[in-house]
Amino acid sequence: MMTPSTPWGHERGHLPRRLQIRNQVVGRRQARRLSRRFARVGVTTPPDRLQMMLAGSPAAHAEMADFNFGLIATRLKREQFSARVQRMKRRGTRSLLFLGLVLVTLNFLFCMAWALFSLTLEAAPL
């Protein structure tokens, strides 16, 4: 009888099937990229070891914990970055709207000044 796999890895220390990229072997470039992302959040795993883990070789419990932490931390970092980008977009839209309203107001004031100036020129006796 086999034990069911958990979402964080099998009991024998293998990565879950959903993390294996469509039954393909992860390339060196993808493994290096993943290793750099993990290094940004504090997990130092060499790209060769990540490549072997994603290919299905057994991993120690500490490696599995580091891998899972790296995945969660990179996802959290990506979500924080996208939230910051959305805030900047909203702030930029608000600033552009404010700038547009200021320009409309200044245009209205210049038009009023021009109208009053032209009326005073016509009313003045020569």
Rank of each mutant, 00 (worst) to 15 (best):
M1N: 15
T3C: 09
S5F: 05
P7D: 02
W8F: 10
G9Q: 04
E11F: 07
R12D: 13
G13Y: 05
H14G: 10
L15Q: 05
R17L: 10
R18S: 12
L19E: 12
Q20S: 07
Q20D: 08
I21D: 12
R22L: 08
N23G: 14
N23Q: 12
Q24A: 11
V26G: 02
G27L: 00
G27P: 01
R32F: 00
R33C: 07
L34E: 11
R36H: 03
F38R: 10
A39V: 05
R40I: 06
V41Y: 01
V43Q: 15
T44R: 10
T45Y: 05
P46I: 09
D48K: 05
R49E: 13
R49G: 04
R49A: 08
M52E: 14
M52F: 03
L54A: 06
L54T: 04
G56C: 03
G56W: 07
G56S: 07
S57A: 15
P58F: 14
A59L: 13
A62I: 08
E63F: 14
M64T: 08
A65P: 10
N68D: 11
N68I: 06
F69Q: 12
G70D: 12
I72H: 11
K77M: 15
E79N: 13
E79Q: 13
E79I: 06
Q80H: 07
F81M: 03
R84K: 14
Q86T: 11
R87T: 11
M88S: 14
R90Y: 09
R90E: 14
R90H: 09
R91L: 11
G92T: 10
T93M: 03
T93V: 02
S95P: 01
S95D: 07
L96M: 07
L96S: 08
L97F: 02
L99T: 05
G100Q: 08
L101P: 01
L101G: 10
V102S: 07
L103D: 04
V104A: 02
T105K: 01
L106V: 02
N107K: 01
N107Y: 00
L109C: 09
F110H: 07
F110K: 06
C111P: 00
M112G: 05
M112I: 04
W114R: 13
W114P: 02
A115H: 11
L116W: 04
F117K: 02
S118E: 09
S118N: 07
L119Q: 13
T120S: 09
T120A: 12
L121Q: 08
A123D: 00
